[in-house]
Design a protein around this nucleic acid. Sequence first.
RNA 1: GGAUCCUUAGCUCAGUUGGCUAGAGCGUACGAUUCACAUUCGUAAGGUCACAGGUUCGAGCCCUGUAGGAUCCACCA
Length: 994
Amino acid sequence: MKFASSYEPNQYESDIYAAWEASGIFNPKISTVPVDNDGDGVDDREEGDTGAQTKPAASEHFASPSESREAESSRVPDSPGRRPDSATKLSPGEQQTANERGLSPDSDTYSIVMPPPNANGNLHIGHGLTIALEDSLARYYRLKGKSSWYIPGADHAGFETWVVYEKSLEKQGHTRFEYSRDDLYARVWDFVAEQRGNMELQLRALGASCSWNDLTFTLDENVIDRVYTTFEKMWNDGLIYRGEKLVNFCPKHRTAFADIEVEHKDEKGTLWDIEYRLAEKSDSTANECEVGSIIVSTTRPETLFGDVAVAVNPNDERYKALIGQHVHLPLTDKTIPIIADEHADPEYGTGAVKITPAHDFDDFEVGERHGLLRIKVIAEDGTMINVPEKYHGLTTAECRKKVLKDLKEQGLLKGEHKITHSVAHCYKCDTVLEPMLKKQWFIDVEKLAKVAIEHLENNEIKFYPENKQKVLINYLKGLKDWNISRQIPWGIAIPMFKKADNQATDEPDWIFDRRTNLQEIEKAGVKYVRDEDTFDTWFSSSHWPIVCTDWTEENFNPYYPLNVMETGADILFAWVARMIMVGLYVTGEVPFKEVYLHGLVLDAHGKKMSKSKGNVINPMDLVAKYGSDAFRLGILRRRSAGMNQAFSENSVISGRNLCNKLWNISRLIQNMVDEDESQSEAVTSEHFASPSESQGGKSSRVPDSPGRRPDSATRLSLGEQQTASDHSLGLTPIVTYTTLNMGEDWICREINSCLEQVENSIRDYRFAEAVEILYQTIWDKYADWFLESQKIYQNTSLLKQTLETLLIALHPFAPFVTEAIWQNLSWTEGFIATQKWPSRLVYDAITAEQFERLITVVQEVRGTLQALPGTNNAKKYGLMYDNDGLIADNELLIKTLAKVPAINPLNGSPRGLRLALANHELYLDVPEKVVKEYKDALTQRILSVGRELDALNLRMQNPNYIDKAPAHLVKETQDQIKEKESLISRLKTQLSLI
RNA sequence: GGAUCCUUAGCUCAGUUGGCUAGAGCGUACGAUUCACAUUCGUAAGGUCACAGGUUCGAGCCCUGUAGGAUCCACCA
């Protein structure tokens, strides 16, 4: 037997993934550029070109830097977007053409890009969620017949990787300062190449159906090219400027950050009061302010050497007279002015604040307003400069101690207050960031943000969750200029060159040039030296949809804009905002039509996962333990867009159980099919369903045999556009039913409803709901009722068709187990991954409804039996019915499902316990003694139904309800009242019998 | 200081423009056991939908306020 008694994911997953990958089914079926094979000037894709393959093979991505740089020139002549190795990767027979799959460009494409995981890292739980979400979409739309393109990526992760590399350098006793920038770049490249690969294997283990040949590495030549092109355009458009501004600077990593990368933390600190003595006696007319000094409040006494003024609020009566006077800067021989500025808050500290424009963001702005000097007193290594000899070279911490001590000795330290304030930290090493005056490249974001806001307000991008649209617009409205310079060697070099010193020419100081492989270039006889800095990785990442889809200026690209951008809600600003700005700037179009943001995956108690807490869950451990599908199902359940939500192993276990259930369902059906076939062969020589015919409509070919519905052959699927509701709108059912097989119509109805809900849920990105409805349909409906009923009367053709339908519907979420089953079933063909999304099934609505009633009867029998005193004997009781065709016709079914020993017509007057709920004349053959003991339960029930009835009557007594509520609801209420009334009367009759 | 979100069963969460008796999984209790599955089957208990008002024929859902929690942005000399 092919099916073992339980599903063991480890036995199947890697083989299945390898088979998928080898067959090329994850490649898109429509090319990104027009293909003109026969030279007639017409796009030939519809004529049967293979049309895939737009990128270099994955192995090319990690050519050494020198190789790839040399290769650059030879790459230019290639036609844009189309790589030279196209079509050679595939053997012709394997690839279905666009035409064969009935595709037309653009509307039949589906594109989604992977937020690139760190190339040399491991996947964490967030990646697990990302892949589960994205791959479900990619697979669903593939089944829906779209040319689905899930584009994988790998991130050079500039700063992250750099930190790891620098640590390893330190371990070997080296520092970055021993090497040139280009050396370091090459070294990190090798380091990454060595470490690389894990991440991609893990993506495969998670089942990501991405097109591996199209993997984009963030340092690929086409990425760098595109980034340079954008930068050049921005430079020419005047959007790039070099400015000396304060930036957040990590003294340990010696690099600047963008505002968004800074981590603010509330910390306890000290606010010191320091006396600055007036330089000259104040004018005698201002007697009231006849003070000899002004006391400033500061948390950073060591920066006082950089002070250029003391500011007070212009409305602060205490200091009004001092404005314009000068004070001695303590510990120096300088004097500085007292100025008036709104920045000084009279309520805070002493109301007087020292102004240090080179080391504080607010002070920088005050300095701008008043035209003050910027005196830099802290160097990039975090030591003091431009200070009196005794402080020179000290670290900021040492200097602070010494300054405080000296101030105290001079009697200038007037107070100390403990305060809480927020301090900027490096998000990687936690070092306190130093505001540092640096010359950097900035992007003037105003215009970019404005365009982005316009398109957002025009609702060109749909957000899930919705509110993020507003949040993003709000952010863009207050966006400050973007510092894109980083002092990290591992990244894309900034293509700007500075005129070498001592060259008095009219040439501009800075020029743009792509030749960043050179340290020095010459242009018009002038020497230029390359800027050592690299781009902020978010600047290159903001091109992601453009570079992944191979968008070009020249050709229409059916994959751009992307259908959806799926990523973490935490990088809405850092990434999504920037992709929109850059996308619009480069292509004129928004880069994606929809954005789905997922929240953080928290631990089982709703706490953030962190190494220090030790509550980190590794997705690969769960995959190894329970299987990839179990992990995916588990992480998708009970999760909605944008929310940080808890996750626990339990939900994965639940997913594993579903996989096993489905496996055993398939095992049972395969057994039934095998049995049926061996019987059939005895009766007829016809052999049904040759493999090539088996796709679609295979239910029609099963020969009749005793016990099977004679009409099974007519149960064909409807066309895709027809739904159950069309059916109820007057489509005549093809099938005439017999009550023996009512479960069949019922399950068809339930599956149709399931399909519809899954489709709607995926359309609205309600993944958890899609999984939930599948779970319930497969388990609670298909297995518990339909399959149980099929143990009595089998319709193998319907069993096959319904099983296939459910397998395909679950496939986007649980790709491996569904494929494993598909491969094991005797009658299926091809990969489930490339099947067609199932059509609706035809059923008879009346029969389906009758089966629903049978379920109610069975449930009531079971419930009543359990509630009876002495339950251990309960199974002995039989069931009696009076004058009831439904029960009579389904005796065997009810007997089996309800586990009662016998079902008989009631002879003579009613006796035993009457069942009330199902509105059938049904009696449990219970001795009078037991019935009496049950009396209390019955009384309770009458009371509770009575309460429900009262509530309904109250509603009907309200004339406003009848006037204003929709008619169908009023009628519904009336029907319910009737129903409750009759139920109560039945219950009362029952009670009176006792 | 600004913004956004959350508060529903013991736990974790659903609940789509307001409309049947507010649902699920896990957990709990009780029961089942010849065969597709103990990764099983059946039955049940468990909710003042944070609180207070308002709108409405009707509110978990809409509005106002309060309390508690989370996240982000800005600021904190």
